[in-house]
Design a protein around this nucleic acid. Structure first.
Lengths: 151, 151
DNA sequence: TAGTTATCCCACTAAATTAGTCTGATTTAA
DNA sequence: TTAAATCAGACTAATTTAGTGGGATAACTA
């Protein structure tokens, strides 16, 4: 009963990297710290952060007093970077995927709609960086629950 | 490896109702006919169409020579109507849902991004009707596979 | 009124995805 | 050398999605 929802993995990953963006860039934050602060299962977060590491968004320091910090500055990391690192590309409908492409093409009339959606979503995610969030903590919080009824 | 994808249910439902919109409004199309034409599992489609019925988007005629037709004209049925009938409201992140609302509010900095996405997606879906599809069979088919790499 | 073709209804199974855990090795500061 | 951390990968559990099966009901036709 809720469509097009991003997986929890992505939510957790974003929370974590946003948390890091609010800390001193030199400071290393441990999994334990991030998990506690952001209220996320520790071992699950560990795996998520590994994916962000492999994509070069986060860097780590091992051993005692180790932890994680951003690999580049907050205005150089977009939502899209994080989402794509964790889940791959955005594909509104399976037929938009190169590999599977729609069995109804070229007859399928929906593809224009899917591509329009995909373009808009991708635009917002690539435009929004972690730095933007620091400037505007709560863009328009009121509209959150009233959106479904909006035209 | 594909984010924010609409479920197959919705794709099937849209295909079916779009198919109906291309037929004579007086004609009744059977499940068998629609399933065959649109290449969708018959029994599965049956259930999907029932949901569209309950929401008043489609009407049926029982018995021999029975079948389905649109309950109102094609320009009065939007993508949003169909999607919402099948899956409920669009909720990009769980925290956007009224019932569950984010445990991090008002601190959560992401809610503005989610609401922006949700607003844009909802706008396209409510604006697009079945009649629009008939006019423009393939809006911009070329961009379908090149989108993921677009900025 | 019998037979055929269809919708209607609900329970059920199977497959796939998502979420989360467990175990243990490796690295490093104190 | 010990404690605190990352790193790696297999594993399990829960949830969601996709799809089936069987049978009642309705309407048209002969």
């Amino acid at each position: 009963m809720s469509l097009m929802q991003i997986p929890r993995r992505v939510d957790y990953g974003l929370r974590a990297i946003i948390y890091l963006s609010t800390q001193d860039p030199e400071k290393c934050c441990s999994i334990t710290e991030i998990a506690k602060q952001q209220n996320v299962p520790k071992k699950f977060l560990e795996k998520i952060i590994q994916d962000l590491m492999r994509r070069g968004l986060i860097r780590s320091k091992r051993g005692s007093c180790g932890g994680y910090s951003l690999a580049r500055s907050a205005n150089e990391i977009s939502f899209y970077d994080v989402i794509e690192a964790l889940e791959g590309s955005i594909t509104v409908n399976a037929c938009m995927d190169e590999e599977f492409s729609c069995d109804q093409l070229p007859r399928c009339t929906m593809v224009g709609v899917w591509s329009e959606i995909q373009r808009k979503v991708t635009e917002v995610f690539t435009r929004t960086t972690l730095a933007d969030l620091r400037r505007t903590p709560c863009r328009d919080i009121v509209s959150a629950s009233s959106l479904s009824s909006a035209a």
